[in-house]
Design a protein around this nucleic acid. Structure first.
Lengths: 364, 364
DNA sequence: TTGTAAGTTGAATCTCACC
DNA sequence: CGGTGAGATTCAACTTACA
C-alpha cells in the first residue's frame, strides 16, 4: 500500500481494470471499498489443468482423486479471491456473492471461515428459467446470493425503508422474483451472439445497490464481465471499480457504461427510516410550552401520568422518562413513549408524537 | 455387517430407534436404504432475546441440541453423520438435507467432499414466515434443501410426471411455496406448548417422497424429531426408519404415526388450488427499467409526479407509494395508483397498469 | 350459527448514540 | 471499551372471544 497517497485518491474509480482479480485487488489500498459484488466462475471442469503426480490410467480411484483435486483447486481459488476482497473492504463494508449449487456451498463455507458474517442468503427466483429438457431433475429456477458483512460487529448499510418501498410497502423478503436477462437488455457481440454467457439482470443489481449502498459509495466487482454492476452503479450515482481479465468483455462493458446516464439527484433520494430523523428530547416540548408541567398524559388504555418540569413523568410509583414510565405501566422490557402517550386538546386526544413532528418540521 | 441375514430383513422397519444417530446408523446394514431425509440442528448461535414490536417475546430455538462450540465442532459432526448416512444408502440411493444459511453451506460442501452428487438445491419459500422484527435485515423467508445422489453415476429415483401433476401440469421447479407448519398440524405437548420447535410441514415431505421414492422404498430419517418423515412415509406406503435421541420427541412421534392410515391409491391424487393473481410491486417496474428513476408520471387531470429509485413517487410536498401520492393529490383517503398514473411513450400516454400486466404475463 | 375483532405465534445469527 | 438508556420495529395465518 502506497502511504504517500490517501487511499481514497488512489482508487481508480469508474474504470475497468484489466488482469487477474486477485493480483489487481491486492494492488489496491486496503480498507477502501464499501461494497463488493462478486459473480465468480463456477465451472468445476478444472481436471485438465491439474498436474498429476504420474500418468497413471484413469480408473475409479483416480476419478475420485480427480474430483477431490478439482474441488481443492476451486477452494484455493475461492479462498484467495475472498481474502483479497476482504482486505479491500472498509470495516463496515459488505459483500454479495452469487452462485448456484455447483459452487455456492463452498463459497458460503469459506465466507464463514474467513470471518465474514452472513446477514441473509437471498434466492433469485427466475420468472423465466430454462426448463430441464431431459426431465431428470427439477427445473433449476433459482440462483443463490449471500449477503455478508466484513465481520460480526460490522455495521453494514441497509436501506430498510427503501427496500420496503420497492416491495409495495411490505418488508422485503429473502426471495426475489426477477426475470433472467434477455431481450434488449441482453448484450450481443458483433456476430449477434450473446456477448457473455451469464449476464446478470440490471434489476438484480438495482435491488442490491439501492438496498445496501448509499449514493457516492464505492462498489467493486472483481468478475466484472460485461459490466452490469458498473452500469447500475453509474445510474444510481455510486462509484464503481471493475476488474475483468478478458479484453472482449471489457470492451463491451466500456461501451455499455459510456451510454449510461446518472439519474437525477431527486430520484436517487430514497425513503429513510425514522432512525435517520433528528432526535428530539421530550423536555423540549415542555420548554417550548407545547406541554405544561402538571399536565396529564394518557396511555392507550387510559393510563394517566403527569408531566414534570424537567421533562420526566410521574405515574403512581413510577417516575422517569416517557419511555421508562410507559414500560413500567406495561410491565414491558421497553416502550416507545412517543407513540404510547397522548394529551387532550379541545376535547380531542392527540399523540405526543404530533408535537415531535412539529419540532422536526421546524428544524428542516 | 451380519452376512448371515439378508440386509433387507435385518432392517428395523417402521420403528423409531433411540440413541445417537451416528452410532445407530453404523449399527445398521450398509447399502440397505433407498432415501435419507435429514433435518439436522442448524447451529443458530442466537445471543440475546428478541421481542416483537408489541413487546411479546419470541420463543427462540435455544435448545441444548442446537449448541455447538465452533464451526469445527459442527463440521466434525456433519462429516460423521453424513459418512454414516452414505454407508447406509444403496448404490442408487439419494439424500435430502435441509438447513438455513447458518449451516447449509457447510453441509453442501461436505456432501460434495464425500462424493455425493448434487441433483438440485431446492428452496422452500415460506408463504408465512416470521418477519424481521427489528428491520435490520431481509425477512428470512426460505430454507434450503439439497437433493443429492450417493455418487455421480447413481441412478436416483425421480418421478417426473408425478411432480408435474402436483404442479398443475407444469414441470416442477426448484422453488416450492409451502406454508410453515402451524394450525391443527402443529403438534402440542400436554401443556399445550409446541412439542418440537422446528416441526416441518407434511406438505414438504409429501413432495419429497412422491418425487424421489417409490411405494415400498425404505426412507430413513436420522433426526426424526416428532416424526413428520415417518407420518408422510406411512401415508404414502413407504417404509420408514426413524432415529431420535430425545425420549419426549419419540413418544409424540409414536402416537402421531399410530394414528396415520395409509392413503388409498385414489386419495393420492392431490387437489390443486387456483392461485390468485400475483401481486406486483411498483418498484419492480423501476428495477426492471420499464420506468426510470426521474421519469415523470401523469395523473388523470395532468398531475405530475417523479419516480424515485426505490419505487416511491414525489410530487410537490407529497412523497410515498403510487397509491399514497395519488391519494394526497386527490385529497382522498385512498387511491389505486395502478389505474391513476400513466407515462409517455412515443408521444402516447400509457397507463402503468399495462406494465403490471406485462410482469404478470411473465410470471405465468 | 355466523361474522368481526382482537390476540397469538413462527429455525432469528435483529440497535445505536452517547458517556 | 463497556455500560446505559432512548426509542424503533411485524406479516400471514390461525385461535379465541363476543356480538
Amino acid at each position: 500500500m502506497n502511504k504517500m497517497i490517501p487511499a481514497a485518491e488512489a482508487l481508480p474509480l469508474n474504470q475497468i481494470l484489466p488482469g487477474d482479480c486477485i493480483e489487481v485487488m491486492n494492488s489496491l489500498p486496503e480498507g477502501s471499498v464499501d461494497l463488493i459484488f462478486a459473480d465468480p466462475p463456477y465451472n468445476l471442469q478444472l481436471k485438465g489443468d491439474l498436474h498429476r503426480p504420474d500418468n497413471s490410467k484413469v480408473d475409479a480411484v483416480d476419478d475420485e482423486w480427480d474430483q477431490f483435486a478439482s474441488f481443492k483447486v476451486y477452494d484455493d481459488f475461492t479462498r484467495e479471491w475472498l481474502a483479497a476482497a476482504r482486505r479491500l473492504l472498509k470495516p463496515n463494508g459488505a459483500i454479495w456473492v452469487i452462485g448456484s449449487y455447483h459452487n455456492v456451498f463452498r463459497m458460503g463455507a469459506e465466507l464463514q471461515n474467513q470471518g465474514f458474517w452472513i446477514l441473509n442468503d437471498v434466492v433469485w427466483r427466475k420468472s423465466n428459467p430454462m426448463p430441464n429438457f431431459r426431465g431428470k431433475r427439477l427445473t433449476n429456477a433459482h440462483e443463490t446470493l449471500i449477503w455478508a458483512q466484513k465481520s460480526e460487529d460490522s455495521k453494514a448499510t441497509f436501506n430498510y425503508e427503501a427496500l420496503k418501498s420497492l416491495n409495495e410497502g411490505v418488508q422485503m423478503r429473502s426471495d426475489w422474483v426477477i426475470p433472467i436477462c434477455n431481450g434488449g437488455e441482453r448484450l450481443k457481440d458483433d456476430n449477434g451472439e450473446k456477448a457473455h454467457p451469464t449476464q446478470k439482470p440490471e434489476a438484480l443489481l438495482h435491488r442490491v445497490l439501492v438496498g445496501t449502498t448509499n449514493p457516492g459509495d464505492v462498489v467493486l466487482d472483481p468478475f466484472f464481465g460485461t459490466g452490469t454492476t458498473g452500469a447500475v452503479a453509474k445510474m444510481l450515482g455510486r462509484e464503481f471499480i471493475g476488474i475483468e481479465r478478458e479484453e472482449a468483455y471489457r470492451k463491451v462493458a466500456e461501451k455499455r457504461i459510456s451510454k449510461i446516464r446518472k439519474f437525477d439527484k431527486e430520484a436517487l433520494t430514497v425513503s429513510t427510516s425514522k432512525r435517520a430523523e433528528p432526535r428530539v428530547a421530550f423536555g423540549q416540548l415542555v420548554e417550548r410550552g407545547m406541554l405544561r408541567p402538571g399536565e396529564t398524559l394518557i396511555g392507550p388504555r387510559g393510563q394517566i401520568a403527569k408531566v414534570r418540569a424537567d421533562g420526566t413523568l410521574i405515574s403512581g410509583e413510577a417516575r422517569g422518562s416517557i419511555h421508562q414510565v410507559g414500560a413500567a405501566l406495561e410491565s414491558a422490557p421497553s416502550c416507545n413513549g412517543w407513540t404510547y402517550w397522548a394529551f387532550k386538546r379541545d376535547g380531542k386526544t392527540v399523540s405526543i408524537d404530533v408535537l415531535r413532528q412539529q419540532i422536526r418540521a421546524e428544524m428542516r
